[in-house]
Nucleic acid binder design. Structure first.
Lengths: 193, 193
DNA sequence: CGTCTATTTGAATGTACTCAAAAGCGGTGG
DNA sequence: CCACCGCTTTTGAGTACATTCAAATAGACG
């Protein structure tokens, strides 16, 4: 169960066996059924979270009730309302399982202890966050410079694995367009998919 | 000259005097005239950069020659093509001074050494990047859920200090709209500014 | 099956863009 | 110190991309 987590960490930093044990012990599994919430607006976010299996979405709902998806996550990804986690404030986003999922999570207090017990963890999260930042920056550029069709095409090309377990209207939300429009785009793209 | 840098670090982690000296020694100042480039597409980005004075922009130019501004930076901000810095690949973005500026920079190799000499630096950059990620996430949400007028209004409200030294067409680029459209928005907003 | 949810289709509308041109503004040289 | 030049901002007309709203069709699941 902790396999993918340990592997994920070891991709970036070195851990000895004792440290692996510490990490495995600290991260507790949570199983989620499809559509179940991991985090709801207003709750505190006291855990750092790693997806061991399944697929989840991180999203906001505005006053008009519209849903905006910030991020999808599959096995091997980290997912959190980072702002709420860091600031100790109530979360402003929701996290919900798209399919049955397993999440490994560690409490902030325990993780902060671990940062002192395993210096390399600071580094791990620094690099992880830097990578996440870079990816988000790219997404920002694309949302400004590309048409909806280009963004959809790139999404499919890049996240083919995800795309198959995610309903179309969620992808539309992620791309910042309406489901109707995405449908039209797909029709026009036709064979190019 | 290194004052704002040290202060910036000490806001998040504790440094002793020896460590302060190490940091001050490692970061070298660069002065830039208005419109001068700090980084041009194709170059490597071998330094981590802190703005000690002035104002700069980080932007991309697409094939059509259109400019997309990812980020403005003023005194106390960090600025880099993080992807290029981390991957050692040539930069895909430009960094250019909007007004006369001073940047403090440290070479990647020296910074990596410092990470081992000053463990708290790992933590500092982890937290910095996390904060940056959170801010970028918010921008992403807003670019999806808000109209151009709302985005402009929020930009002015939030970055009043910046807004005064930045020409309007650059703000338009940052907001993902045309200068003409921003002009129209300003006219319609009228007194509400 | 039948029901609920997701996707498609189409018409009318709106927001932002393109292109073109005029007006404003700031710096520089005569 | 004013006139001119280049760059920024404004204005307006026509257009394009994406949205809203409504309704029909298709798919998934009990």
């Amino acid at each position: 169960m902790h396999e993918p987590l340990i592997q994920n960490i070891k991709e970036l930093v070195i851990l000895n066996e004792a440290e692996v044990d510490l990490v495995e012990e600290a991260f507790k599994p949570i199983t989620l059924k499809k559509k179940q919430f991991l985090l709801q607006k207003g709750e505190p976010s006291n855990h750092m979270r790693f997806i061991a299996a399944g697929c989840l979405k991180l999203f906001e709902i505005d006053k008009a009730g519209r849903e905006y998806i910030l991020q999808f996550g599959i096995k091997g990804w980290w997912m959190n309302d980072l702002y709420a986690y860091l600031s100790l404030k109530p979360v402003t986003y929701f996290i919900q399982a798209i399919v049955d999922s397993v999440v490994l999570q560690i409490h902030r207090d325990r993780l902060n202890e671990l940062f002192n017990e395993i210096h390399m963890l600071d580094r791990f999260f620094r690099i992880k966050t830097q990578n996440g930042y870079v990816a988000l920056q790219e997404r920002t550029i694309h949302s400004m410079s590309q048409t909806a069709e280009e963004r959809y095409y790139n999404f499919v090309k890049r996240y083919r694995i995800m795309e198959q377990q995610i309903p179309q209207y969620m992808i539309a939300s992620y791309l910042g367009i309406t489901p109707e429009h995405l449908s039209t785009i797909r029709k026009n793209m036709g064979s190019r998919l």
